[in-house]
């Protein structure tokens, strides 16, 4: 079908939130570089950071082709209220159990999102989604292994995983905050919508959580972490942006 103006707005909104999630979580993951609890985890989070920032760049590139600014400008020259990321990705890395569960909950959702988008009617997005699927596979595999190991670990390990899951889960529901154009995305065959994604995500994470000996919280309609998709963020986003863009802002026209 021919896209209307509203379909294009819907598409841009979807691309912005995906790209912003990837950029911000990519930045957070990179904060583990040099600090991982073991060398392999240091490298894993650094590699996942690189993947996510690469994916963000590809999405900003599609936005640029749709008439938005240059990828670097869009990534580095906006303030917090112009970002569409969800709250989950903004939170500081905290302890390893938080970063791991955030990685698990977020990447499981991204994997399903990319699967859905591989069939998108918007071919440039379908193409990158097919590429990202191969990459996210490794992230999900990594998260699953550690969630199971630590969930089934000793009493302290198990207890920390369950406590963190309980606090992380409502934040993760913010990923699925419906955007302003859900009906248009569904109608145009661009994306089946956040609600459909959330339902598939719960089905996908439940068996992993249970095989880790953990219990999935059952408040699926908690909206306490909503707002990110509309520019309302946690107190942690602006300081992250200030740090991330500090060098870029000294000379935005510099050649690297």
């Amino acid at each position: 079908m021919e896209y209307t103006e509203k379909h294009v707005l819907a598409l841009k909104e979807l691309l912005y939130k995906m790209a912003d999630d990837q950029l911000i979580l990519g930045h957070r993951n990179s904060e583990w570089t040099g600090l991982g609890p073991i060398l392999e985890e240091d490298i894993a989070f650094s590699s996942m950071a690189q993947d996510k920032i690469g994916q963000a760049q590809a999405l900003y590139e599609i936005l640029h082709e749709l008439g938005e600014g240059e990828p670097d400008t869009v990534a580095f020259m906006r303030n917090a209220e112009q970002f569409h990321c969800c709250h989950l990705v903004e939170i500081p890395i905290g302890e390893y159990d938080f970063s791991l569960l955030r990685h698990f909950l977020f990447d499981r959702a991204e994997q399903i999102r990319f699967d859905m988008l591989a069939q998108s009617s918007f071919e440039p997005l379908a193409q990158v989604a097919r590429k990202f699927r191969g990459e996210i596979k490794y992230h999900v595999m990594h998260a699953d292994v550690w969630v199971k190991q630590l969930g089934k670990g000793g009493a302290e390990s198990h207890g920390r995983m369950q406590d963190t899951l309980n606090s992380c889960f409502p934040m993760a529901l913010g990923i699925f905050e419906p955007g302003p154009y859900e009906a248009e995305l569904i109608e145009a065959g661009i994306f089946p919508g956040e609600l459909a994604l959330r339902n598939k995500w719960i089905e996908a994470i439940r068996p992993v959580i249970e095989s880790a000996g953990l219990r999935l919280p059952d408040q699926f309609d908690d909206t306490s972490a909503y707002g990110g998709r509309y520019g309302s963020h946690t107190e942690y986003l602006q300081p992250l942006l200030d740090e991330m863009t500090e060098v870029f802002r000294i000379d935005p026209a510099a050649e690297w």
Partner: peptide, 13 residues
């Protein structure tokens, strides 16, 4: 396999 992530994105250890 020690880890699916290595010194570059395309390598495992």
């Amino acid at each position: 396999m020690k880890t699916p992530f290595g010194p570059t994105l395309c390598r495992s250890m």
